[in-house]
Nucleic acid binder design. Structure first.
Lengths: 367, 367
DNA sequence: AATTGGTTCTGAACCGTTACGGTCACTTCA
DNA sequence: TGAAGTGACCGTAACGGTTCAGAACCAATT
């Protein structure tokens, strides 16, 4: 066999064409447009490719030429692995993955460590579009994404006016939950929320910080609460609101402890997520507080674990949110951009909310 | 302002260089090698870039030139979204994501619908390497990955001799579990396993099919069982083994029903995954069988839900598996390839296994 | 005055492919 | 018989960067 053994460089489409004595176009067509050349030649091309160890057209070179990467990027601005620990994030991912596989598109998880301000990963991502999921509105990664000349859809973010958006009415949903509690008779409540900004502030939250929160979702949920309770005659500035940077059960526990220590008289603990609420339940149990008899606890999200626990919460369609984001991004119909999609939520009244212990029911019917 | 408004095409590095009257090299250096040009010029470049709306070097073009994509591909050969529904897969993903973010690398989820034989997604993926997680050994997507000239690590797959591998000793682990059951006195058992090949076969499995199973993991777990029970004098070919294509609780329920209908006398139900075992628990409850008094049930994986249920199972370090796979892939030290990593497992004896009801303990100590 | 060294910038080659607009030989049909 | 059509293949020009070996310049040293 005269097969040259000095082939250090792997075969390319050009070298294959040279070997065959045909043009590069023809080799390209053998892979991409079988109808553009005779079956015999095509077979000959493919056989020679195998013989030379040519693995087929290089995906990156193809992407450069066709201006298509065949993938969408997902920006989470959390340690990437966080996405796999939070049930709501997992649901979102599943929905997004669903939309991607329908379109035959890849899904690139972009590493965006919130600690370092390293935006290079966003610049390096070879994608046809971005989905940005619940990052602070002042996040440099978000800014970097918006500078990229590709379609983007933001999720659980404020409407930017320039890119598609998917979300829910966080404020309205929380307002509804608050009204439920108010109608039960709760006036003296405590609140536990997730991180409000990029800086860690594990403790009480001033009204200013609530207002200036960089996480759209948290800001709106708090604002819904504030509005409802203010309308009910409660001085919102006196309500203890505790923030936790890390989002896990332990945070819910310690935050609940902090609120209950600050005001043992509260009758309800409103949590901005189910995870935090589940933690609060544990702290309540530790203190011997019976839920809902001694203390009402509510969550937000409607994750499975919450359902099992019978938690009073707001269910939001996390999977649908992911799917909607994917569909919006992959829908080539550019006309109507930017679009804004609001998904509906549902108030789930579980076994963790009831009238406060001392409350007389009649009080709400009297003059 | 003389700013030309007929800029249809977005700015490129070349157009920016032309506008500035410098070479392309200089513009490139402004982004990639700040020390290679004077600070003033660099600022001028960056300012002009902003003015022209130049978003920085195109990632795809850069990848083509540098031969680095900054991402690794993950092949699952399951509907992509499945990865987010199976706790073990989620754990693996988390570990892999951990390794990726440590390296600042993206993680591309490659869509590989098992239904269609469409391998194009593998060809299109612009990645520096692949992780292949638990696909059948005859999967065309796997073959396509192996043809790509990039490093690959397979997980829960047979050792291919040519690429890195991460896994556990499935056979040994299951052998150990079987010995536990044998020592308790179980001889008449039933088995529930996950899909053994790409074709759907929801029902009993012949010994041939067990042997020829295309899923390495399942094949080895069954083989570990067969070996242990054969050694204990049990005719393995008479043991009912039921297969389910879909991996979820409902499959576990229906499979358990099928086994129990076939042989109501079995004293233990060995499931090849915790998910299936949890389903079997539900079916047992439905039939009024008390676990472990009337029926022993075991799982495999050691997911959190199993722990909560007190399931007897084999715990495997799913997160570590993902992390190891990522580390192997991202470790540039090419020398020692291919490498093979076996992680250790742990037999968890929970509350779902006990001696069979009729068994007299003494029997195992007599002559 | 010649050499050395350092900084700043350039020219040209190269990465591997596909899009576009042909050419050319060979039917087909009036 | 000539015009029009068809199938098979090709040449060229991008696509948007990075890289490396120098060139040009200036200051400091021999």
């Amino acid at each position: 066999m005269a097969r040259s053994m000095h082939v250090r460089r792997p075969a390319t489409l050009a070298s294959l064409a040279a070997e065959l004595g045909v043009s590069r176009t023809t080799v390209s067509n053998a892979y991409n447009r079988p109808d553009q050349l005779s079956p015999e030649l095509r077979r000959r091309v493919l056989d020679t490719a195998r013989r030379l160890g040519y693995p087929g057209p290089d995906p990156v070179a193809r992407s450069l030429r066709t201006r298509k990467a065949g993938a969408v990027g997902l920006l989470l601005t959390e340690n990437l692995s966080y996405a796999f620990r939070d049930p709501a994030a997992i649901g979102f991912l599943e929905g997004l993955a669903l939309a991607c596989e329908d379109a035959g598109t890849g899904l690139l998880l972009v590493p965006a460590n919130p600690e370092r301000e390293d935006v290079a990963s966003v610049h390096r991502a070879g994608v046809d579009g971005f989905v940005v999921y619940s990052v602070p509105d002042d996040d440099p990664h978000l800014a970097a994404v918006l500078e990229r000349p590709v379609p983007t859809v933001v999720c659980d973010q404020p409407d930017m006016g320039t890119v598609d958006r998917v979300g829910i009415d966080d404020k309205g949903a929380m307002y509804g939950l608050a009204q439920h509690l108010i109608s039960l008779g709760h006036r003296r409540v405590g609140v536990i929320c997730m991180r409000l900004a990029r800086d860690r502030n594990d403790g009480f939250v001033t009204p200013e910080r609530q207002h200036a929160a960089h996480f759209h979702v948290q800001r709106n949920r708090l604002s819904g609460l504030a509005e409802a309770f203010s309308e009910a005659g409660v001085d919102w500035s006196r309500i203890p609101v505790v923030e936790r940077f890390d989002h896990n059960i332990a945070s819910g526990e310690s935050a609940a402890a902090q609120v209950l220590d600050a005001d043992p008289q509260i009758t309800a603990l409103i949590c901005c997520s189910d995870i935090l609420a589940l933690g609060a339940m544990q702290e309540a149990a530790r203190r011997g507080l019976r839920v809902p008899h001694d203390l009402t606890i509510t969550g937000f999200d409607g994750i499975r674990e919450a359902e099992q626990a019978g938690l009073t919460t707001v269910r939001q369609p996390v999977l649908e949110k992911g799917r909607a984001a994917g569909k919006l991004l992959l829908d080539t119909n550019e006309r109507a951009r930017p679009r804004s999609v609001n998904l509906s939520t549902e108030l789930i009244i579980g076994k963790t909310s009831a009238a406060p212990r001392g409350a007389s029911e009649e009080r709400w019917f009297g003059p």
